[in-house]
């Protein structure tokens, strides 16, 4: 009887430890293999954040989304995270998509002003009206991939 109790407790402890280990080492979200929760245009996405940041944060933040838009510029100034900027209806508003450095070759082939579809994790809107030197705003996406 004692042996059964000992074995049961050992199995439970082992199970808990295994669960904790797997949780601690769980991988980051794989954007490529995950389904997007929203498909939205760059203009609509920026507009939602610009009009009501709190509501947009609740709807989009940390969600995998697909954004369609016109490529405004490629920004490879930070080699640790190459970025692409999509136009919106707002002259001072952009969608800034961050990519893994391994994606650089795919990005280099894209031409400015082409229509592209980007899948990534939406993070929020960066920029602050009170900071006068930082007049423009970016809705940012991380771990992005080009899907079209």
């Amino acid at each position: 009887m004692k042996k059964i109790a000992f074995l049961s407790i050992s199995f439970i402890i082992l199970g808990v430890l295994l669960f904790a280990y797997r949780m601690y080492n769980k991988p980051h979200t794989n954007v490529e293999q995950s389904n997007a929760t929203e498909i939205i245009s760059a203009e609509q996405l920026f507009d939602k954040f610009d009009k009501n940041e709190d509501s947009a944060m609740n709807q989009f933040s940390e969600q995998i989304i697909v954004v369609t838009g016109t490529l405004f510029a490629k920004d490879f100034s930070n080699e640790l995270e190459p970025q692409m900027i999509l136009k919106t209806d707002n002259e001072s508003g952009f969608i800034r998509c961050g990519f893994k450095p391994s994606q650089l070759q795919n990005l280099e082939q894209l031409k400015d002003s082409s229509i592209i579809k980007v899948k990534g994790i939406c993070k929020g809107i960066n920029g602050d009206d009170e900071l006068t030197l930082l007049e423009d705003k970016d809705v940012t996406l991380s771990s992005s991939i080009i899907i079209e």
Partner: peptide, 21 residues
């Protein structure tokens, strides 16, 4: 993805970054 700028005349320096980034 830190947004930052400074004025070389006044010396004003600002940055803004998203915590989730």
């Amino acid at each position: 993805k830190v947004k930052t700028a400074f004025s070389s005349e006044s010396g004003q320096l600002q940055f803004s970054c998203l915590i989730k980034d």
